[in-house]
């Protein structure tokens, strides 16, 4: 390093500019090779550490969990009876649908909502920063994972694979501002783009919803399958609030996702569509 004060300042300025250029260049790129190696080496240890952390949290939360369990039990009983009623109703619709299809001689076609294979993976890490919404899973290229595969849980859409190493893969959550998913409001098929707001908030926003659709609270949002990245019909979340975009031409809705992104432990990766 230069000894003259001016030389030192110039040297530091050069380092600063170099790092700013690198920062911009690596913003949207795939995982750098050293990071892939580190992730592969640490993958088995990460899994054990995550399990230990989970066990510690469970022990600490035990008294609170017991108190909640009694209340939850009552709520679940009520919910089961409601769902049984809905199931009976749904069966009626299914039978009616079959009858009508026969009547119309409807030919079954394979839609984009069907997928060939799914694989479960454990979450073994999260991004260090609170700004981003990414997780690391314990399956990688050797298990057949590829970039852009959709990731879900039984509750709904989680995100997509953005980077793969041999033993691990990085998943971009839909809550990350870098994520964008083409979606529909299930009830009236209103289209829009679902974006993340920030990595740590369990909220999404659906933008560019045409104003000729009636959008209201509690409507369900699903994937449209238009982008080709995500299968059609995956549950995303429920509309919480509707406002007009600043331009006035579209609606914007805040969405509460069905998946609790802060408590993700296992995910399902869709292999083939």
């Amino acid at each position: 390093m230069p000894r003259h004060p001016l030389g030192k300042i110039l040297f530091l300025l050069m380092v600063l500019i170099f790092l700013l250029i690198i920062l911009k260049a690596t913003a949207k790129k795939e995982l750098a090779p050293p990071a892939k190696t580190v992730r592969d080496v640490l993958a088995p240890v990460s899994k054990v550490t995550m399990q230990t952390g989970q066990a510690i949290r469970n022990v600490l939360k035990l008294p609170v969990s017991l108190a909640k369990a009694v209340k939850q039990n009552q709520e679940l009983k009520e919910k089961v009876s409601r769902l049984e009623e809905q199931l009976r109703e749904a069966n009626e619709y299914r039978l009616e649908n079959q009858r009508l299809k026969k009547l119309l001689d409807f030919k079954e076609t394979k839609t984009k909502t069907t997928w060939g294979a799914v694989y479960s993976a454990a979450v073994i890490g999260r991004d260090l920063n609170n700004w981003f919404g990414t997780i690391t899973v314990n399956k990688g290229a050797r298990d057949g994972l590829k970039v852009n595969m959709a990731v879900i849980t039984p509750a709904g859409l989680v995100g997509r694979v953005i980077s793969v190493s041999q033993k691990a893969a990085e998943v971009l959550l839909v809550t990350d501002p870098r994520s964008g998913v083409s979606c529909l409001v299930q009830e009236n098929r209103a289209p829009g783009l679902v974006e993340g707001m920030s990595g740590n908030t369990n909220l999404l926003q659906m933008i560019h919803i045409p104003t000729d659709f009636k959008i209201r609270k509690d409507q369900i949002v699903i994937t449209s399958g238009l982008s080709g990245l995500y299968p059609r019909g995956l549950s995303v979340g429920r509309i919480k609030k509707v406002t007009r975009e600043p331009s006035g031409l579209f609606f914007k809705a805040t969405i509460q996702p069905f998946v609790d992104f802060n408590r993700l432990e296992e995910v399902i990766i869709i292999f083939e569509r």
Binding site: L16, L19, L20, I22, L23, T26, A27, K28, K29, E30, L31, A32, P34, A35, K36, V38, R39, D127, L128, N129, S163, E170
Partner: peptide, 13 residues
Amino acid sequence: DIYTGNFFGLNIL
């Protein structure tokens, strides 16, 4: 930054 792999330089700076 090495561990994260993207936005290299963010944490160093």
